[in-house]
């Protein structure tokens, strides 16, 4: 078991389907809400403290051994957009596929059997992190970072944004990613200390949810979500 496994798991090139998802950025770009570096940064910041916090807490709770089916059901309740629930399950399934080759364990095989159509990605991420020997905090970092790196990469393609600027956005958000990961782990500890899945954050972002439904109805789009 090695801490460097975190680098493997958090690598943007980890083959788990993330490249085809924009984290809602494609809809926000088309709606004119993301037009450049500044609005990308505010988008990522809002996403980090809502969907990012929730994803990080779910991933951390899964590492700490919270019951996967309960987590998955609680993730459903925190994802009102049917399009986003679908995307989260597809990404969960894709992540599990890659992880079962990278860190083959009986627990991952069992998860694939239990959720043939995929569990929510952050839940899978937590179980995978545990299989890779990583901590709850590692998983929370991975989930929180992924939720901002996805849109940043997508906006480089969507707006031909200078990739250095997009990377600058991610660099400026790092201290907030730290805070989100800490809060997520705190919530996850409460879950396993007996408070149950209700203790998990449920921070929502109305425009991301609405935008996801809008995006899912387009006939022509570059990204899957």
């Amino acid at each position: 078991m090695s801490r460097a496994a975190l680098l493997v798991l958090a690598d943007g090139r980890f083959p788990a389907g993330g490249h085809a998802h924009s984290g809602g950025a494609e809809a926000a770009v088309k709606a004119g809400r993301i037009t450049g570096t500044a609005s990308l940064e505010e988008y990522c910041r809002g996403r980090l403290h809502t969907a990012g916090l929730v994803a990080a807490a779910f991933a951390a709770a899964a590492v700490l051994g919270a019951e996967v089916r309960e987590l998955d059901s609680a993730a459903d309740a925190r994802t009102p957009s049917a399009a986003l629930r679908g995307a989260a399950r597809r990404l969960g399934r894709q992540l599990l596929r890659a992880a079962r080759v990278a860190w083959p364990t009986a627990e991952l095989d069992a998860l694939a059997r239990e959720f043939p159509k995929g569990a929510h990605q952050p839940v899978v991420l937590g179980v995978v992190a545990r299989a890779a020997g990583l901590s709850a905090q590692d998983a929370a970092y991975c989930a929180a970072y992924e939720c901002v790196s996805g849109p940043a990469t997508a906006v480089v393609r969507l707006l031909s944004l200078d990739p250095f600027e997009a990377t600058g956005v991610l660099a400026r958000l790092t201290t907030e990613v730290d805070r989100v990961a800490d809060r997520a782990v705190e919530a996850a500890r409460e879950v396993v200390a007996g408070a149950g899945v209700d203790a998990l954050p449920a921070a929502s972002a109305p425009l991301m949810e609405i935008g996801a439904e809008w995006h899912a109805g387009w006939a022509v789009r570059l990204f899957a979500s």
């Binding site: 083959p15 389907g17 597809r90």
Partner: peptide
């Protein structure tokens, strides 16, 4: 990318 580097969506 989808056919070479990250084939997960195609496998699904």
């Amino acid at each position: 990318t989808a056919i070479r580097d990250d084939i997960s969506a195609n496998l699904e």
